[in-house]
């Protein structure tokens, strides 16, 4: 009996260790591995398996947010998601599919589904039944095929940017809640929101999410560390899981020095974040358009990025490796 008890105790300890959640070490990519922040690559630029393997070897990361922004037709997107989920399974990386309101495909094929004044970046009008139907179907398909743990919604940057730029109708709280309900009821997955803007943390509709990936850009750019801590702590009180972006560059092609990602990582951890993230969508966009660099080709050709922001990039990789060892 004594031996059995000890055995059971050992098994219990082992079991509880295996279900403990890892610190989330995430990256964010465009479904097509393109280099445009508004998802205008209509074909797969690099193979998902190569992307996942390279990043795994380099950092030991465990989570990948994959964005659908209407690059291709929904049916085609689901086929491409298949490649991501297969790669995720092979390299022990959790895939979080994320849907954006940006949709170049529907803008071409069904312009009546786009907000009439959505400016240079076409965004679907989430009030329309047909839009809800199309997106719910994407969610259902992905859910039934791959059963993701989380399903993500791109923070309606539109929600806040709308009222600032006046290029886009404001999304009302009731409309946002209805949209989340429509998508959420089409999956068993928990809900994630990314990249959540600092001012959004108190909004009613974001409280529907379990996981938030924080947009930390302004704090790392301006080195406003107290504000980053305050924002993270607020988010930690709202969401079960919180990760924060260790962004390495500014929007204009300037590098954010490596010491800042180190500092941001430290603050995020101290403030209760449960993970880190790094947004390759903006990195590849800025490098392509501001520095004439092809980030993905550089990284995937030999497994290391050797471009102008290598110091900051490598620092984040090092932070990930250290975090994975803890």
């Amino acid at each position: 009996m004594k031996r059995l008890s000890i055995l059971l105790l050992i098994l219990f300890c082992l079991g509880s260790g295996s279900v403990a959640e890892d610190f989330r070490l995430a990256f964010t990519v465009d479904l097509m591995v393109g280099h445009h922040a508004w998802f205008d690559s209509p074909f797969l630029v690099h193979e998902p398996e190569q992307v996942v393997k390279t990043l795994k070897d380099l950092t030991g990361f465990n989570t990948l947010y994959v964005f659908y922004g209407g690059q291709v037709a929904p049916e085609k997107a689901i086929e491409i998601f298949d490649k991501w989920f297969s790669a995720g399974e092979k390299f022990a990386v959790e895939i979080i599919p994320v849907l954006s309101l940006i949709n170049n495909y529907l803008a071409r094929e069904k312009p009546e589904l786009i907000y009439p004044n959505s400016g240079p970046v076409p965004k679907v009008d989430l009030r329309l039944d047909e839009v809800k139907k199309v997106y719910a179907q994407i969610v259902r398909e992905i859910d039934s095929r791959y059963a993701p743990n989380y399903f993500g919604i791109f923070e309606f940057n539109e929600f806040s940017a709308a009222s600032m730029t006046e290029q886009y109708p404001r999304i009302k709280t009731t409309e946002a809640l209805e949209w989340i309900e429509v998508l959420g009821s089409s999956t068993k997955a928990k809900k994630a929101v990314t990249f959540m803007q600092p001012w959004a943390v108190s909004l009613r509709w974001v409280k529907e999410f379990n996981l938030a990936s924080l947009d930390t850009y302004g704090f790392i750019r301006d080195e406003t560390w107290d504000e980053l801590a305050s924002y993270t702590k607020k988010a930690v009180n709202v969401f079960k899981e919180v990760d924060g972006d260790l962004i390495i560059l500014d929007d204009y092609g300037g590098e954010l020095p490596a010491i800042r990602q180190r500092k941001a990582a430290e603050i995020l951890r101290q403030s209760g974040a449960t993970g880190f993230n790094m947004d390759f969508i903006i990195i590849s966009h800025v490098l392509w358009y501001k520095r004439n660099e092809d980030f993905w080709t550089d990284l995937l050709s030999d497994g290391s990025y050797d471009g102008v922001f290598r110091e900051s990039f490598n620092e984040v990789c090092q932070i990930y490796r250290e975090s994975g060892e803890k």
């Binding site: 806040s160 404001r170 709280t173 001012w199 108190s202 909004l203 009613r204």
Partner: peptide
Amino acid sequence: DEETDDWKLGMTLEVYEGCLNNDTLGL
């Protein structure tokens, strides 16, 4: 009772639960 188009609302102002709400400080 509901958000109408009568108002132009700043980015974190929301209408829900019968009120016009702002929970964000610093703006």
